[in-house]
């Protein structure tokens, strides 16, 4: 089930309580996540946990952490060419989870136990808005699982190896990877000879 992304709004509105919780309670992580300047600390924590939830470290194939799904997500959000509405949707969903946590558990997401967080996301997956948003996050996770390691994901091709997938060659290099290849769209010089190619 997919909900039209541009017409989508979360149907249940809720006044977030997150801002009323003292920072000292929420700041329980030993290592803070790199927000890349595109997420708040709270959004970053929800995003990181969500990737773990979708592609867990379960002894069966690579996990979100081993394929670097979260850093890949930050790269996507930092991409000025990526669909801005889609990026907004990813971020809005993080806020919706925070709202949902307050609504269902009476406290912010980052204060929940791991099991409670997991339970909340399972519950969200049963709603239209939650399933659609989690699906979009899983797509990012899949890109990180099977993308070329040049994008700082899928280290040493572990996703390909796990799925016995032949990714083909040639592989991208620094000049022809996305978005470097888009420099071609700025070329103005007329081409008249083979040696220009």
């Amino acid at each position: 089930m997919q909900v039209g992304r541009r017409s989508f709004i979360r149907r249940i509105t809720f006044v977030a309580l997150g801002s009323q919780i003292p920072w000292v309670i929420s700041c329980h992580r030993e290592i803070s996540l790199n927000t890349g300047g595109v997420l708040t600390e709270k959004q970053a924590e929800i995003a990181d946990f969500t990737f773990d939830f979708l592609l867990p470290e379960d002894g069966f194939g690579p996990s979100a952490r081993s394929i670097r799904a979260y850093p890949y997500f930050i790269w996507v959000l930092q991409d000025p060419l990526y669909d801005p509405e889609q990026k907004e949707y990813y971020k809005k969903g993080l806020d919706w989870i925070e709202e949902y946590s307050n609504e269902e558990e009476g406290q912010p997401f980052h204060t929940l136990t791991k099991n409670k967080k997991k339970g909340l996301l399972q519950k969200a997956a049963k709603t239209g808005w939650g399933e659609s948003w989690l699906s979009s996050f899983l797509t990012i996770g899949i890109e990180a699982l099977l993308g070329d390691p040049i994008y700082q994901c899928n280290p040493e091709g572990q996703g390909w190896e796990w799925l016995q997938h032949n990714p083909g060659h040639p592989r991208p290099n620094k000049d022809n990877r996305y978005p470097a290849i888009l420099q071609r769209k700025a070329e103005r010089t007329p081409i008249t000879k083979l040696d220009q190619l």
Binding site: L146, I150, P170, R171
Partner: peptide, 12 residues
């Protein structure tokens, strides 16, 4: 796009 630009990169 030159031939050297064309890879099997699914992202691109």
């Amino acid at each position: 796009y030159r031939t050297k630009d064309l890879t099997k990169d699914e992202i691109t």
